[in-house]
Design a protein around this nucleic acid. Structure first.
Lengths: 108, 108
DNA sequence: TCTATAATTCCATTATTGTGGAATCATGGA
DNA sequence: TCCATGATTCCACAATAATGGAATTATAGA
């Protein structure tokens, strides 16, 4: 991942309303949520929400699709995972056991 | 993790110089690096570096210890890991297989 | 085509943040 | 005690970001 991409993503997440929006979408899964529903759940004015959705979108953290009159936003998990990887890259002089939490196997 | 803590950490990382500093320390491991060496490697004026180290420290992402005339800074891995966990909390309606990368076992 | 709804864009105001020069503090050695 | 070194704090200026009112665009139904 490029540094600029990571910076854009971190900058997008470093704001209360946007962090809430992003986590809401992360939790919602790939079905996503229409803008109006996000505004309702978080109590944000439509234009303010729109501004923040744009920031998240430009940072590559969310995407949207139109469904009739609604725009449905969803988290971009690949961007999120790339960011997490960037932060921990080459940690501890290449000995990640020293700092990363023990990973578990998937159970599926 | 508290939202405010996550916001502080993200805000601290959402800046070019600080992202470089933090990643340098993550890579350096728990031995850490003296401020002067960080300044040298990243080409930052001492006072500017000091300002950024303070931001990272207040966000809980790094800590320091004195060793003679040097202050040695080191990444706080627990804070980093808590942040990563916060971002992915309850993802995909509790079905993380849908968005998180497959975890592997440690080999040690 | 007229109206209602969902959402966005434009704009001005306010607040926050980053930067580096100069002064200061802390430590250790002569 | 005096000096050199490593680092921080103080301060003012410049740049960037967040907010919400009003106007605008897109879609669908009567």
């Amino acid at each position: 991942m490029e540094k600029d991409t990571a910076l854009a993503a971190l900058g997008a997440l470093a704001q209360g309303a946007r962090l809430d929006i992003f986590r809401l979408l992360v939790q919602a899964g790939s079905d996503g949520l229409p803008a109006g529903q996000i505004a309702g759940r978080l109590g944000l004015p439509a234009n303010t929400l729109s501004f923040h959705l744009n920031q998240l979108r430009h940072a590559g953290l969310i995407s949207f699709r139109r469904e009739s009159r609604s725009l449905i936003y969803a988290a971009e998990y690949s961007a999120m995972n790339a960011l997490l990887a960037y932060l921990t890259e080459n940690c501890c002089q290449g000995n990640p056991g020293a700092c990363l939490p023990p990973k578990e196997m998937n159970h599926d």
